[in-house]
Each structure stands twice: as structure tokens, then as C-alpha cells.
Design a protein around this nucleic acid. Structure first.
Lengths: 158, 158
DNA sequence: CCATACCCGACTATTTTTGTCAAGTTTTGC
DNA sequence: GCAAAACTTGACAAAAATAGTCGGGTATGG
């Protein structure tokens, strides 16, 4: 399980956009260049980010992209949702997994595993939802370097 | 980002083993059959789980596998660590990413993204460390179906 | 001694991810 | 109006990761 470069790049682009948050739009080429990323791939990502309303675009010469929302209103989760169709995908929702394993297994009353993956998804999304792009701009200042313990809300006897 | 079938299968095998926790070992074939998984793949996974000390093996006829620890002493995190080399891998640690992006970027004082991914890793590992195999045995009982909010330990001004 | 079952590295196949291409549309500046 | 800049898009190609197989080896109980 790991973050895809897609997410990394996408987030990168957003942060870059947020940095040069001035009046006029930044072109895909500008962003690609400043972040040292492949231009056409950046275009593709921005396109998806646009469809999800994370960025706005201005067409034509002098056009480019702009953040659609204020960085403080934009979380890493939003970006993940836009790009990957969510930061986290449940394994049980894959066709092959459902037909080959989960259905027969849960007919057995057995798929006790699912809840771990579901809950893990919640934990991930929930965390990513707390990180705003704004926070990413103030470089490193929020990076404690220390453990971030998971605090189970209500463990036993639920 | 998603859980690999490797983890799913591995966890499955462990749970199966825990279920038939009797005196004598269960063979890879037995486990594979009962969980409807490819036998040779199961063998491979068990082999890795063995190297990490999650299961023990008994060779020869009537041999097989046994849990090395009590289910209550075994967390999903342990299993992930054994199989994938951790449930979560940091993107910055990939060679290509380091040489192509992170290093030049942080020379710019820019890799403010890293802390999100690092912290995400903590959150994931931390959560998985709270789930014991034992808890998985009592099928569904701990599955609330509801959101599991992330509780940030100390947000602002750290 | 032989059937069972673990052990293990090398290999193949499949799927996912990453990245490119080419053709099209919109807009600005001259 | 026309050319250049820049977004839009789907199809395609390349690369990487994952999943799964094969074949031989080794240990052991009966």
C-alpha cells in the first residue's frame, strides 16, 4: 500500500498553484516546469482536478489554471478523491475479489476481515481530511517528526 | 492506494489458522482449500510469515503450520509488516522519486508534502496495530459500520 | 522407503500505473 | 481574421508492480 505518484504529483501541482496565488492563471507548462514534472501528465491531472472543481481553468492564450477554492478550504482528501477516486480503495469492491472470494466467504459467515479494511479506509480519509493545503504551504512547521497515535474512539463491547 | 491481495490473503490464512487452533498443524493445502485460495501462493505467503516469526512450521508428513503467538498477541500490523514489508510504503523512499524529485525539491526548501505522507504512515500503522487477530475471530461483532474519525492529537501551534 | 508436506528461487502472466501522442477547441494579441 | 498560446480529451504505449506457477529440493512419520 502506498501513495501513487499521481497523488504526489497532483498535490504538488496544487501546492505550486497555491504558492503563486496571484491574479492571473498559471499554465500547465509553467507548473510542470517549476515542479520538474512531465508536462502532458500534469495536464492530465489538472484536467481531472478541474472536473472535480478543485481548480478552475481559463482557456486561450494567457490562460491557465487557478485554485477554485481558498487553500484553507481545500484538504488533501479532496485532492485524493479527485485523482484516484479516493485515496483508498476497498479491496472487497473489486470485481474479481467479490466474485471469487468475498461472496462465497461471507455466505459462510466468514468475511470478518472486511471491517478492518473498511475502518482503515475511514481512518485514512479522516486523517487526510484534516490536512489543508494551507497547512502544506507553511513548510515543515507542522511536521513534528513524532508518532501520531491512532486513538480508537470506542473499542471494546461495541 | 489499496490493500494488496497479498495482505488480504495473508490475513485470511492467519485467521484460518487461528480458527483451527488445535494441537496439530494445518497444511498449506488445507488452508488454501478452506479459504479457496491458490495453494502455491498460500505456501509462498506462509513462508514469508514464517520468516517473520508469525507462524511456525512443522516439516515432513503430518506437518504444517501453527501460529507462533496467541491471536491476542498478534496484530494486523504485524502481518502487514511481514508480508509487504509494512502496510504502507513512503513514496519518497523510492529511488526514482528521491533522485528525480525530492532531493532537488527539498534543496529548494520545498518538500512540505513529505510530512503528510509520513504522518499518514503513522496513522495507518498505528491503527493496524490496534487490531488483533483475536478481534477478527469474533466475526463482525466489532464492526460498527460507522465512521471512525481521526482525532488529531495536537493540531495548531505545534 | 515412500508419501506427505514444507522450502525456495526463478520464471511467467496479468494488471495497474505512468506517461505520450495527436487532434481538437477556445481565446488573446496583432 | 489569423496565428500562437493554452486548455481538452481519448486512445495508445511503456514500464512497473503484483499475482501466480513451476520444478526441484529437503525433512519426517508411518
Amino acid at each position: 500500500m502506498k501513495v501513487t505518484t499521481q497523488l504526489e504529483y497532483g498535490l504538488c501541482c496544487i501546492v505550486a498553484l497555491a504558492r503563486l496565488q496571484v491574479g492571473d492563471p498559471a499554465s500547465a507548462s509553467d507548473i510542470a516546469q517549476s515542479e520538474k514534472l512531465p508536462r502532458q501528465y500534469v495536464e492530465k491531472l489538472l484536467c481531472r482536478l478541474k472536473r472535480s472543481g478543485i481548480v478552475r481553468s481559463v482557456r486561450g492564450a494567457k490562460g491557465g489554471y487557478l485554485l477554485a477554492r481558498h487553500p484553507s478550504e481545500l484538504t488533501v482528501r479532496d485532492i485524493c478523491d479527485a485523482l484516484d477516486g479516493g485515496a483508498y480503495k476497498l479491496i472487497c469492491e473489486e470485481e474479481s475479489m467479490r466474485t471469487k472470494r468475498c461472496i462465497p466467504v461471507s455466505a459462510d459467515g466468514r468475511c470478518s476481515l472486511r471491517f478492518v479494511w473498511t475502518e482503515l479506509g475511514s481512518v485514512i480519509n479522516s486523517y487526510l481530511g484534516t490536512v489543508t493545503v494551507d497547512a502544506l504551504l507553511s513548510d515543515g512547521s507542522c511536521h513534528t517528526g513524532k508518532e501520531t497515535p491512532y486513538q480508537r474512539p470506542c473499542t471494546a463491547g461495541v
